[in-house]
Measured scan of single mutants.
Amino acid sequence: MEVRTIKVFTTVDNINLHTQVVDMSMTYGQQFGPTYLDGADVTKIKPHNSHEGKTFYVLPNDDTLRVEAFEYYHTTDPSFLGRYMSALNHTKKWKYPQVNGLTSIKWADNNCYLATALLTLQQIELKFNPPALQDAYYRARAGEAANFCALILAYCNKTVGELGDVRETMSYLFQHANLDSCKRVLNVVCKTCGQQQTTLKGVEAVMYMGTLSYEQFKKGVQIPCTCGKQATKYLVQQESPFVMMSAPPAQYELKHGTFTCASEYTGNYQCGHYKHITSKETLYCIDGALLTKSSEYKGPITDVFYKENSYTTTIK
């Protein structure tokens, strides 16, 4: 009895394709271990004539594949690729409408935090270190965002349907971005203890939790000093293409032309909904596939993004 075979390709990165001759009487799992086709788990399936010449994702289970996976995804987590594939199996079914010149995501599976993050990423200057993220990001900007969303979920250790947080998501993504040249110098002034300067680099240099107003941050924000008295913390120097200011959701007025974009969060910790506000020729609110415009805006804002380049204080 002759062994019926077909020729397929296996890959971990969709760049390096490895030619395989597979036995049609055995499952993919018996031949390769966990195997995925377009995100779908085909591990328990036997090869079919229609699979001839198709590319299958496999887990990096030998040295060659491990090197290829690390170079593309910059992670050695053995569960990463499987999590990416199972997320992709959902995100490829989502709709990605162009809204006001940006790629958004039609609401499904509690994905409003991903839509808000995706919209924000198209408006701030950011370059990702893992080629996987950078490639998928370019495709997302062009309207094909399924891979990018699935990668975000995998890097953030999230599953489809789980509630997510924009600030946490951005923080994970910033860790995989090139923020080497970003720098922030802060000064804390206390009447009792004097003053202390701190220099922050990388992710810490672009994120701040405690106030939404970048102007206020430049002037000074009140913080408790270690001595128990009130101290003032203010920005001395900022070198970065953008800054992200966050605070627990509270009524906040966004003035046209003073910011790049913002995240609105309605609801409580267990259950809520994100919308995205962007400042173009007027203010726009993007909620999944829905767009509304207004000249002014007041609502429960939790993150505001500002364009920056270089700032030095005039406070002496």
Rank of each mutant, 00 (worst) to 15 (best):
Y138P: 06
A150R: 06
H256W: 09
R66K: 15
Q196I: 10
K307L: 13
L88H: 03
H273R: 00
A145R: 04
K229R: 15
K93S: 11
V221D: 02
Y208R: 01
A150Y: 05
N157Q: 11
V8K: 13
Q122W: 00
Y73K: 03
Y284P: 01
H176Q: 12
F80Y: 03
M85V: 10
K183P: 07
R4F: 11
I315K: 15
N129A: 10
E2S: 11
G267L: 04
A108E: 11
Q222L: 13
Q196M: 11
N16A: 11
I6Q: 05
Y274A: 09
D180W: 04
Q31A: 14
C225A: 02
K307V: 13
K229N: 15
K44W: 09
A205E: 00
S213D: 14
I15P: 01
E296H: 15
L200F: 10
A177T: 05
K219N: 12
K183V: 11
N49H: 11
Q30N: 15
V12R: 12
T5Y: 09
S263G: 01
Y96Q: 05
L283C: 02
K218Q: 05
V206I: 09
G299Q: 00
D287Y: 02
V206T: 02
Q230D: 12
P241H: 06
A247H: 02
Y155R: 05
H51Y: 07
I45L: 12
K218F: 02
T76K: 13
A140C: 10
A154S: 08
Y284E: 10
C182D: 07
Y172L: 13
E215A: 07
W94Q: 08
A289D: 15
L59C: 14
T211D: 08
E253Q: 07
Y208K: 04
Y208V: 04
A142Y: 13
T199P: 07
A87I: 06
K201P: 02
C156A: 08
Q98P: 01
F9R: 13
A136K: 03
I105P: 08
T91H: 02
V203F: 08
V185M: 09
G53L: 13
V236I: 10
K127N: 11
W94K: 06
D23K: 12
C271H: 15
K127M: 10
Q20V: 12
N14Q: 11
A87L: 05
G33L: 06
S25F: 15
D77S: 09
Y113H: 05
L118K: 00
A145K: 03
N89S: 14
L291F: 15
N178D: 14
N309R: 11
H51Q: 10
G288Q: 01
T64R: 12
T232Y: 09
T10I: 10
K7M: 14
R167E: 03
H74K: 09
Y274I: 01
Q30D: 14
A140I: 13
F242V: 00
H18E: 06
W94H: 07
I6A: 13
T116D: 09
Q197W: 03
L118E: 00
N111W: 03
Q216I: 06
H90D: 10
K255G: 01
N187A: 11
C261G: 04
A262E: 02
G29V: 06
R167C: 00
I45D: 15
P47H: 05
M170N: 02
N178R: 09
K275P: 02
T313D: 13
V12Q: 09
R139E: 13
G220A: 05
K191E: 15
P34L: 09
K293R: 08
Y265H: 05
V189P: 03
L254N: 03
G220P: 08
K54P: 03
Y84W: 08
S50W: 15
Y57G: 06
Q20E: 12
R139Q: 15
F259P: 03
A69Q: 12
N110R: 02
A140T: 09
E125P: 12
A115Y: 07
F242E: 01
R167M: 03
D165L: 01
S310N: 10
L200E: 09
T302C: 09
E281N: 00
K307Q: 11
Q222I: 08
Y72K: 11
P131F: 01
V99W: 11
N61E: 11
T27C: 15
D77V: 07
F174A: 00
T19H: 11
F128K: 04
Q195M: 14
V160E: 03
G210Y: 01
V3W: 11
G257R: 03
G267C: 04
Q175K: 12
L173V: 05
V42M: 13
S79F: 09
N187G: 08
G161N: 03
V58I: 13
Y28G: 08
S213C: 05
L153I: 06
S295C: 09
F174Y: 07
S310F: 14
N147H: 12
A69K: 13
A262Y: 01
I6M: 12
V67P: 08
K229A: 14
P34N: 11
Y172E: 01
E68Y: 06
V206W: 01
G29E: 12
P34M: 15
K106H: 13
D109K: 00
T292L: 04
V99R: 07
S79M: 14
T76I: 10
Q216D: 15
V160D: 03
V304E: 06
Q251V: 08
C227M: 00
L179N: 02
L81W: 02
E281I: 00
L65G: 11
E2H: 09
C182H: 04
N89M: 15
A140D: 02
E71A: 12
V3H: 13
P131H: 04
D77F: 06
P241D: 07
P34K: 15
Q238E: 04
S213A: 06
N178L: 07
F80V: 06
E2V: 11
K158Q: 03
V58H: 06
C149V: 13
V67T: 15
A289R: 03
D38L: 12
P97S: 01
T169K: 00
L133M: 07
S279V: 00
D109M: 00
L81V: 14
G210A: 01
N178Y: 04
Y208M: 01
S240K: 04
W94A: 07
L88F: 06
A69G: 08
T5N: 15
V58E: 05
Q216N: 07
R184M: 02
G82A: 15
E308W: 00
A87H: 09
E204C: 07
K316L: 15
T211W: 01
I277M: 09
P224I: 12
L102W: 15
V206P: 04
C149T: 09
P130H: 03
S181P: 09
P60F: 12
L254F: 00
R4W: 11
N157E: 07
I286R: 00
G210S: 03
I223P: 00
N49V: 12
T91K: 07
H51R: 04
A136V: 02
Y73E: 02
F305E: 00
T116R: 06
